[in-house]
């Protein structure tokens, strides 16, 4: 053995006693991964939106046509609360109240989506703002549309679970899966806060 090796002294560690060996739930880890990936997509769209604020060469401008969707936002944000209540219910095995809160969540989400539909209808048919009208239109429909598409996916998932609940297939042992799905819904809500701030406050 050469001297060089001797110089790199080895450090002996005492072996620790084995702890109980627990690992995180794979569903939760996967959902966190998906959320991280989705966050990156939204970040890019949000950056594109912010960068292009005020860069449109012709109208209509956000100030002229956008109305702040307060009722909509309240619906969506409160759905985070209702889904949280339903998570609690299923954890304790109260399937009935779970179904109730879950259904309410779905309704709130649906109202939000309908509200977006109404808003877009007005923008397109009254204000003549489409995705190709100007930069504002392009970035607005893309960002809000991206979020809306996530709401749609969420609603489909919510509906599926709702159907299972109604047909009596959801039991307490599904609590974990339901919580994972709820994570996604919380994420969609949280993103709305950012989209809302950027589009309706910063951008107006």
């Amino acid at each position: 053995m050469s001297e060089g090796v001797e110089a790199m002294s080895t450090i002996a560690l005492v072996q620790e006693p084995e702890h109980a060996f627990t690992q995180p739930s794979k569903g939760r880890v996967a959902m966190f991964c998906v959320i991280i990936a989705e966050s990156a997509i939204f970040t890019i769209f949000v950056v594109a939106y912010i960068y292009n604020i005020g860069k449109s060469l012709y109208g209509p401008t956000p100030r002229q046509v956008l109305e702040i969707p307060i009722f909509n936002s309240i619906c969506l944000l409160s759905s985070s609360l209702t889904i949280w209540l339903s998570e609690h219910a299923i954890e304790r095995g109260k399937v009935k109240s779970f179904g109730l809160w879950w259904g309410l969540t779905f309704v709130l989400g649906a109202i939000f989506l309908a509200g977006t539909g109404v808003e877009w209808h007005k923008l397109i048919y009254e204000d003549g703002l489409t995705i190709s009208t100007n930069l504002f239109g392009t970035t607005f429909y893309s960002l809000v549309g991206l979020h809306a598409s996530h709401v749609i996916i969420g609603l489909i998932a919510l509906l599926t679970v709702l159907l299972f609940t109604v047909t009596g297939h959801v039991r307490q042992e599904h609590a974990e899966r339901i919580q994972i799905l709820a994570l996604y819904w919380h994420f969609v809500d949280a993103v709305w806060i950012i989209v809302f701030t950027v589009v309706y406050i910063l951008g107006r």
């Binding site: 053995m1 050469s2 090796v5 110089a7 790199m8 002294s9 080895t10 450090i11």
Partner: peptide
């Protein structure tokens, strides 16, 4: 310097796991 010399040399070298200074 540290290539194996001959196929029959099968003893394992000293195991070194790291060195903070280096």
């Amino acid at each position: 310097r540290f290539r194996q010399h001959g196929q029959d040399d099968v003893s394992e070298p000293a195991q070194i796991y790291g060195s903070t200074q280096v």
